[in-house]
Structure formats: C-alpha cells, structure tokens
C-alpha cells in the first residue's frame, strides 16, 4: 500500500505536467478540427462575433430557414439588425436547444462588446419528442465542446462518453414511456388522458377531426400535432426549464440584458386539426413560461400567435420555420424590446 502511495505522489505531478503539455499540442493542432468534426462550429461563430456585436441572437433553425418562394432571404436576426441601430448577430444552428445556448453564454467573455442577448424560447423544445430526439446524442456531444473547460478535458470527456449518449432505441423507449404514462392537463370530461390514448383515438377514427371529416393526410398531421404539443411542463424535472433557469442566472452574473423570444407556433392548425383541448395545453405551457421568466425579471417577447398558419413554411409538419412575412413579424416584435 505504501509503495503505491509513494508512486502516486510522484506520478500525480508528472501526470498534471503531461496533461498541460498535451493540452498545448491539442489546442495547437487538433482542437478546431475536432470541433468541426462533431459539428460544434458555433465555437468559432461566437468567438468571431462577440467583439463586433451589441446583441447576440441565440437560435435554432427558426432564425435562418427561408421558404423557396421568399424574395427576401434575411434571417430574423438580420432583419432585427437592419431595423435597429444596434449591431445584431446570430449564433444559430439547426436542432440545438437551451443546453447549447447555456454553454455558449457561459463562454461569453466578460469584456466582450455584447451587452444584450436574445435567446429563442421554443415551447416545443420542452416536449418529450425533442428531449428524446435522435439528434440529442450529437447535440450533447457538441455541447461538451462548448463547455468552458480546458480543451483537453473536453477531449477526455468526449472520448470517455462523458455526455448523454443513450442509444436510439433507449430514447425511443423513453419517449414512448412519456407518451403512454404522462397525464395531460385536460378537463375531467375529456376521455383521453395521455398522448398515446389521444393519438390512437385520432388514428383509428374514434376522435374525429374538429370538422368531423375523415381525411387521412390531415389525420396523420393531427396525430403529429398531438404528439408534438400535448405535454405538461413539470418545472421540477423538465431539463429545458433547468437550462433556461441557468441561462437567467448566468446572464445576471455576467450583467447581460436577457431577452427570451417565445417563438410562434402554428396554433391555427392545432385548432383546426385537433381542437380546443390541444390549443388549451399549448396556451397553458406558453403562459407557464411567460409567468416563470417574467417573475425572474426577464423580458419575454411573446410571438406565440403572431404568425398566420399559412406563413409557416412546413405545412405538413410541426416546425418553427417561417416565410419572410412571418420572420418580419417576429423581428418587429423583438425590436420593441430592444429599444
């Protein structure tokens, strides 16, 4: 035992020295190529923007996705930039969520030019389908790269599975478990208490479309709306709530003005395809988020219903992708909070 103890006393400093030397070589030759390989490119984006921006706009694909028919391809952040005297730049990437924003905000330097940050508050991202998405492993991997740690530690964490790398099968299983066991906030008289029950009823014709018709493509889409938007937000366990809460406290620590941008959802379609019960759930979740973060002193831009159903690019899917009319409406809404 003694022999081992003495050896450890010698080995530990040697190990630390080796680690620091390796870190030097890692940063010099491999760090950036690794970041690129696992699609953690926002590391460069934020680095290059934080000294030339007044405002950073953190977003997923809602910011920059444009419709084929758009004549103006400006993203929401670019529209805000052109309408505002402040320099607004975006740190955005498809499918990312609050956990990524949080890590990136942690990385913002204290002497950076950025004084305001706008973070998209995507209510859909609080639901089980997004939390258990198949992309989550890749996102979790990239998030390791965004952590404010010594690069070699991030490398070790990646190599030794120090992130949420559940298999696709396990994620599907967790999703199915949520769908079949989590009770929805619906009236007592409503017969379907879980997503699975409601979805099955819609799929097999027990629960008809609000207009009473039988239209298979619409039913498929309605099922999709149920699975995507019908969920309660448990503030104690929902990982997104924890991430947004942390974003609030980090912003306070860094003296940043924080704006949450509650993104528009296609409430019109939810209403016409599924009905008022689903719309109620969507409103409950929206209100919970607004109230929670208003209480924390955060400015929450409510764009939840400002986009017309037809201005959503994906008409047969649930996304926050808007055509130029939709993007402009959102940009103008945000602008009110910047002035």
């Amino acid at each position: 035992m003694k022999k081992l103890f003495y050896k450890l006393c010698i080995l530990l400093p040697v190990f630390v020295f080796c680690l620091l030397t390796t870190n030097y070589f890692y940063v010099k030759y491999y760090y950036w190529s690794n970041a690129e390989a696992i699609d953690a490119k926002l590391l460069f984006t934020q680095d290059s923007l934080e000294n030339c921006s007044d405002v950073l706009y953190y977003a997923e694909s809602s910011n920059a996705t444009a419709a084929n028919t758009d004549t103006c391809l400006q993203s929401i952040s670019q529209m805000i930039d052109s309408l505002s005297p402040l320099k607004v730049n975006a740190v955005d990437h498809g499918a990312i969520h609050a956990r990524t924003f949080l890590q990136l905000i942690k990385n913002l330097k204290t002497d950076s030019k950025v004084k305001t940050i706008i973070v998209t508050l995507n209510s859909r991202s609080f639901g089980s389908p997004w939390i258990n998405s198949h992309l989550e492993t890749n996102i979790a991997q990239a998030n390791v790269m965004y952590e404010p740690n010594l690069p070699i530690f991030k490398r070790i964490k990646l190599s030794f599975n120090g992130y949420d790398n559940k298999s696709i099968q396990l994620r599907d299983q967790d999703l199915e478990k949520d769908w079949s066991s989590v009770k929805l906030n619906v009236p007592e008289s409503f017969p379907y208490k879980t997503v699975r029950q409601w979805d099955n009823a819609m799929a097999n014709g027990t629960y008809l479309l609000p207009n009473g018709e039988w239209d298979m493509p619409k039913i498929t889409l309605a099922c999709h709306y149920i699975k995507t938007y019908a969920f309660p937000i448990d503030v104690n366990t929902n990982p997104r709530i924890q991430d947004f809460d942390e974003i609030v406290s980090i912003s306070k620590q860094k003296n940043l003005k924080l704006i949450f941008h509650l993104l528009a959802e296609n409430v019109q379609y939810a209403d016409s395809l599924v009905g008022k019960e689903l719309v109620n759930i969507m409103h409950q979740n929206k209100q919970l988020l607004i109230d929670r973060y208003h209480k924390d002193g955060v400015a929450v831009v409510n764009s939840f219903e400002i986009v017309n159903g037809l201005d959503f690019i994906d008409q047969d899917w649930t996304t926050e992708h808007y055509n130029q009319t939709g993007r402009l409406a959102l940009a103008k809404n945000v602008l009110k909070y910047l002035q």
């Binding site: 080796c18 390796t22 696992i38 991997q141 490398r155 990646l158 190599s159 599975n161």
Partner: peptide, 18 residues
C-alpha cells in the same frame, strides 16, 4: 505508458461506439 496515454488523450476516437 506515455505513448499510450498521449495516444488516448489526443487520438482516441472523438465519437464513441459501443
């Protein structure tokens, strides 16, 4: 030991496979 440790630190697969 040093070669193996440095290899693990720098060149292990960035994506882990079960």
């Amino acid at each position: 030991y040093i070669i193996l440790i440095i290899s693990l630190l720098l060149f292990s697969g960035i994506q882990s496979f079960q």
